[in-house]
């Protein structure tokens, strides 16, 4: 290839020239058989390359998509926790400090065992208090100055008797 236009022909063929340069090449092509032949070969090779079906096998794409999905699941389950911790580090740090303070206040080292015992007995103490209140309460008087239990039972007995009386009449 000896023509000085040989590289320019490439730029011309692939549309990398401005109008003025294109015009110059067109004029040159009219008189240069070598460049004409080059252009012809370029067209043939391009046609050949165009006809090539370069599609990747479907299973390759599917495999890659599966891999990407797996990574997404991991990212959302685990990665996001770390990502959030690091991206909101101020909030994370202040939460940690607060948690440490709470721990230090409520679970001091060498805590008083008796105090802890009292705390653990709090339920039974409350039960005792409730029972004593129950004992103090006066159940003897009802709304009509009678024993609540007697009043209720008496009423029931009266009702049963009246029902039976009605049955006999019928």
């Amino acid at each position: 290839m000896t023509c000085k236009y040989s590289e320019k022909i490439l730029l011309y063929f692939y549309g990398e020239m401005d109008n003025a340069q294109c015009k110059e090449i067109k004029e040159h092509l009219e008189s240069c058989a070598e460049c004409k032949k080059n252009l012809e070969v370029l067209r043939d090779v391009s046609g050949h390359l165009d006809s090539f079906k370069g599609n990747a096998p479907a299973h390759l794409i599917e495999g890659l998509i599966r891999e990407a999905r797996k990574r997404e699941i991991w990212k959302f389950n685990v990665g996001n926790i770390f990502e959030n911790i690091f991206s909101h580090w101020k909030v994370s740090a202040s939460t940690l400090v607060f948690a440490c303070l709470m721990f230090a206040v409520f679970f001091p080292f060498g805590a008083d065992k008796d105090r802890l015992k009292w705390i653990s007995n709090i339920d039974s103490d409350l039960d005792g208090l409730e029972y004593s209140m129950y004992e103090e309460y006066d159940f003897s008087l009802g709304e009509y100055g009678e024993s609540v239990e007697d009043f209720e039972y008496e009423n029931i007995d009266d009702e049963i008797e009246s029902i039976n009386k009605n049955r006999r009449i019928l």
């Binding site: 390359l49 090539f52 370069g54 599609n55 990747a56 794409i61 998509i65 990407a68 999905r69 997404e72």
Partner: peptide, 27 residues
């Protein structure tokens, strides 16, 4: 979109570049 977890975006990118990349590799 893919960075935000949209794997369909990845699929589109792959479909877009599948042919040029695969043809290059084969050749």
């Amino acid at each position: 979109a893919y960075k935000k977890g949209d794997t369909q975006a990845l699929e589109i990118i792959m479909k877009k570049y599948e042919k040029p990349i695969y043809a290059y590799l084969l050749k």
